[in-house]
Amino acid sequence: MEVRTIKVFTTVDNINLHTQVVDMSMTYGQQFGPTYLDGADVTKIKPHNSHEGKTFYVLPNDDTLRVEAFEYYHTTDPSFLGRYMSALNHTKKWKYPQVNGLTSIKWADNNCYLATALLTLQQIELKFNPPALQDAYYRARAGEAANFCALILAYCNKTVGELGDVRETMSYLFQHANLDSCKRVLNVVCKTCGQQQTTLKGVEAVMYMGTLSYEQFKKGVQIPCTCGKQATKYLVQQESPFVMMSAPPAQYELKHGTFTCASEYTGNYQCGHYKHITSKETLYCIDGALLTKSSEYKGPITDVFYKENSYTTTIK
């Protein structure tokens, strides 16, 4: 009895394709271990004539594949690729409408935090270190965002349907971005203890939790000093293409032309909904596939993004 075979390709990165001759009487799992086709788990399936010449994702289970996976995804987590594939199996079914010149995501599976993050990423200057993220990001900007969303979920250790947080998501993504040249110098002034300067680099240099107003941050924000008295913390120097200011959701007025974009969060910790506000020729609110415009805006804002380049204080 002759062994019926077909020729397929296996890959971990969709760049390096490895030619395989597979036995049609055995499952993919018996031949390769966990195997995925377009995100779908085909591990328990036997090869079919229609699979001839198709590319299958496999887990990096030998040295060659491990090197290829690390170079593309910059992670050695053995569960990463499987999590990416199972997320992709959902995100490829989502709709990605162009809204006001940006790629958004039609609401499904509690994905409003991903839509808000995706919209924000198209408006701030950011370059990702893992080629996987950078490639998928370019495709997302062009309207094909399924891979990018699935990668975000995998890097953030999230599953489809789980509630997510924009600030946490951005923080994970910033860790995989090139923020080497970003720098922030802060000064804390206390009447009792004097003053202390701190220099922050990388992710810490672009994120701040405690106030939404970048102007206020430049002037000074009140913080408790270690001595128990009130101290003032203010920005001395900022070198970065953008800054992200966050605070627990509270009524906040966004003035046209003073910011790049913002995240609105309605609801409580267990259950809520994100919308995205962007400042173009007027203010726009993007909620999944829905767009509304207004000249002014007041609502429960939790993150505001500002364009920056270089700032030095005039406070002496």
Rank of each mutant, 00 (worst) to 15 (best):
M1I: 09
M1W: 06
R4K: 13
T5S: 12
I6G: 04
I6D: 00
I6E: 02
V8L: 07
F9M: 11
F9E: 07
T10I: 15
T10N: 08
T10R: 09
V12G: 10
V12W: 05
N14Q: 11
I15E: 11
I15N: 15
N16P: 03
H18C: 10
H18T: 12
H18M: 08
V21W: 15
V21N: 12
V21H: 12
V22K: 03
D23K: 13
D23F: 09
M24P: 12
M24R: 15
M24I: 12
M24F: 11
Y28H: 02
G29V: 02
Q31Y: 13
G33N: 00
P34V: 07
P34D: 14
Y36R: 02
A40H: 10
A40F: 13
A40E: 13
D41K: 04
V42G: 00
V42F: 12
T43C: 10
T43R: 12
T43F: 07
K44R: 11
K44H: 15
I45W: 15
P47G: 04
P47T: 01
H48Q: 12
N49T: 11
N49S: 09
N49V: 14
S50V: 14
S50H: 13
H51F: 02
H51Y: 04
H51M: 07
E52P: 04
E52S: 11
G53V: 04
K54T: 12
K54F: 12
K54A: 12
K54Q: 10
K54L: 14
F56N: 01
F56S: 01
F56E: 02
Y57I: 14
V58G: 00
V58D: 00
P60G: 08
N61L: 13
T64N: 11
T64L: 13
T64M: 07
L65P: 07
L65V: 08
R66T: 12
R66P: 08
V67C: 09
V67I: 14
E68D: 09
A69P: 05
E71H: 06
E71A: 13
Y72G: 08
Y72Q: 13
Y73G: 01
Y73I: 00
Y73C: 02
Y73W: 02
Y73E: 00
Y73D: 02
T75G: 00
T76C: 14
F80Y: 01
F80P: 00
L81P: 12
G82Y: 09
G82V: 11
Y84A: 00
Y84S: 03
M85P: 00
S86E: 06
S86Q: 15
S86T: 06
A87T: 05
A87S: 09
L88H: 01
T91A: 05
T91N: 00
K92V: 12
K93M: 15
K93L: 12
W94C: 00
W94G: 00
Y96M: 03
P97G: 14
V99F: 12
L102T: 06
T103L: 02
T103K: 01
T103V: 12
I105N: 02
W107T: 15
D109C: 02
N110T: 02
C112W: 06
C112M: 06
L114R: 02
A115P: 01
L118P: 03
L118T: 02
L118I: 09
L121P: 05
L121S: 04
Q122N: 00
Q122P: 02
Q123S: 06
Q123Y: 02
I124Y: 02
E125D: 11
E125C: 07
L126H: 02
K127G: 08
K127Y: 12
F128R: 01
F128I: 00
F128E: 00
N129L: 08
N129H: 09
A132T: 01
A132W: 02
D135K: 09
D135V: 09
Y137V: 04
Y137G: 02
Y138E: 13
Y138R: 14
Y138L: 14
R139A: 14
R139H: 11
R141A: 08
R141K: 11
A142E: 14
A142Q: 11
E144A: 06
A145L: 05
A146K: 06
N147Y: 15
A150W: 00
A150H: 06
A154M: 02
A154T: 07
C156P: 00
N157A: 05
K158A: 04
K158W: 02
K158M: 02
T159D: 15
T159W: 08
V160A: 15
E162P: 01
L163C: 15
V166S: 07
R167Y: 09
R167P: 04
E168A: 08
T169Q: 01
T169L: 12
T169W: 02
M170K: 00
Y172E: 12
L173F: 02
F174D: 07
F174E: 01
F174V: 01
Q175S: 13
H176I: 04
H176Y: 12
A177Q: 01
A177N: 00
D180P: 02
S181W: 13
C182P: 03
C182A: 09
K183I: 09
K183N: 08
K183M: 07
R184P: 04
R184H: 03
R184W: 08
L186N: 06
L186Q: 08
L186V: 13
N187L: 11
V189I: 12
C190V: 01
K191T: 14
K191A: 12
K191G: 14
K191Y: 15
K191V: 08
T192P: 04
T192V: 09
C193Q: 05
G194C: 04
G194H: 05
Q195N: 14
Q196G: 07
Q196S: 14
T198S: 12
T198P: 04
T198I: 12
T198W: 11
T199M: 08
K201P: 04
K201N: 11
K201Y: 10
G202Y: 01
V203G: 08
V203P: 14
V203F: 12
E204M: 09
A205L: 03
V206H: 03
M207C: 14
M207R: 04
Y208D: 11
Y208F: 07
G210A: 05
G210E: 04
T211C: 11
T211S: 06
Y214H: 06
Y214Q: 06
E215P: 08
E215Y: 04
E215A: 09
Q216C: 07
V221R: 04
Q222S: 12
Q222K: 13
I223M: 11
P224V: 13
T226R: 14
T226Y: 07
G228D: 06
Q230D: 11
A231R: 06
A231D: 04
K233A: 14
V236S: 09
V236H: 07
V236D: 04
Q238Y: 02
Q238D: 03
Q238T: 04
E239Q: 11
S240L: 03
S240W: 01
P241M: 07
F242G: 04
V243C: 07
V243P: 07
M244R: 06
S246Y: 03
A247W: 04
P248H: 11
P249W: 00
Q251E: 13
Q251C: 09
E253I: 15
K255T: 12
G257D: 07
T260M: 15
T260K: 05
S263H: 12
E264C: 10
Y265N: 05
Y265L: 14
G267M: 15
N268P: 15
Y269V: 14
Q270K: 09
Q270F: 11
C271R: 10
G272L: 03
H273G: 06
H273Q: 04
H273M: 02
Y274E: 09
K275Q: 00
H276L: 00
H276S: 05
I277E: 04
T278Q: 13
S279P: 04
S279I: 02
K280L: 13
E281V: 02
E281L: 01
E281R: 04
E281Y: 03
T282D: 11
L283G: 06
L283D: 07
L283F: 12
L283Q: 05
C285L: 08
C285A: 03
I286L: 05
D287P: 06
G288P: 04
A289H: 15
A289L: 04
L290G: 14
L290E: 15
L291Y: 13
T292C: 11
T292P: 05
K293E: 13
K293G: 07
S294D: 08
S294H: 14
S295R: 13
E296S: 13
Y297E: 04
K298T: 14
G299H: 07
G299K: 00
G299L: 06
P300Q: 14
P300A: 15
P300C: 15
I301A: 06
T302D: 05
D303M: 08
D303L: 04
D303Y: 02
V304W: 04
V304N: 02
F305T: 06
K307S: 10
K307H: 14
E308Q: 12
E308G: 08
S310Y: 08
Y311H: 12
Y311F: 13
Y311G: 05
T312A: 13
T312W: 09
I315G: 13
I315M: 15
K316W: 09
K316F: 14
